[in-house]
Amino acid sequence: MTEQTLAAIETETPPSLRRPGFMSVVKSDKKALVGLIVLAIFLATAILAPLISPYDPNDMDFEMMEAPSMVHPLGTDDLGRDLLSRIIHGTQISLFVGISTVAISLFFGVALGVAAGYYGGWLDNIIMRYIDLQWAFPNFIIAVYLVAVFGSGLLNVIIAISLAFLDDFARIARGMVLVIKEEQYVAAARTVGTSDFCIMWRHIAPNAVAPIIVQATVSISYAILGEASLSFLGLGVEVDTPTWGLILAEGRSFISRAWWLGVFPGVAIMLTVLSINFLGDGLRDYLDVRETGDPGAS
């Protein structure tokens, strides 16, 4: 189909039948709009962290456990490090882990799910038994166990959380493929000799995208919470890397004297996750995906 034909079809489609643009939906859904704005601020903070951070996050000072002031807007920790700078740099790790883990589990999970649903038979059996097995563990417990096996560190945390979420994507993709592969356009593509890979990649995957996008937003928020929990437990990234979970873990012993150490890093985690959840809810309405509980919740 040529570009002109596509353009013609697009102009001929009555406006009432077209799905409204995501931005117009966001404008009418206050929750999604707030989510988008807050998330954009955090993304900008992560990208510009070295430029906007008032101090080096690991710079120690004699002004230990100072309450929030004009010099240190969010106070300092027990080693005199500026809390605001540490939280700003923590944004990088949290968002990086959240987005990269979901990108990895989405890629491999969808590939497994599409292959299982499309080919069926023994391949489907093997993949589904693996998914059933993973279903026997809560996601966070899988991540904890994998960190125990691989060891801690940023890369291992990303691998552990990615593997923990793999089954959610595979399950959804397989379910969608089982329905879509019976459609006439897939049969037509097969009849004209289109290769299996091309059918899966060009005809099936794009039509299964809506629930996967919704699952991806849910998973990003749980990945961020998962990374924070692992860091808090001492199983996360290296100790000299400021992450929100680690800042909370380090400040925990001093919260009776320095409340800011126990409050601000948690507010950062909560606001990021809340904004993603708000945006995810807007996306769910926009893409018309029915809520069936939160599979990534565990």
Binding site: S221, L225, A228, S229, F232, G245, L248, R252, I255, G262, V263, P265, G266, I269, M270, V273, L274, N277, D294
Partner: peptide, 11 residues
Amino acid sequence: LSMPDFWLAIL
């Protein structure tokens, strides 16, 4: 849903 449980515990 957005609050980390360990942070709520600290609060």
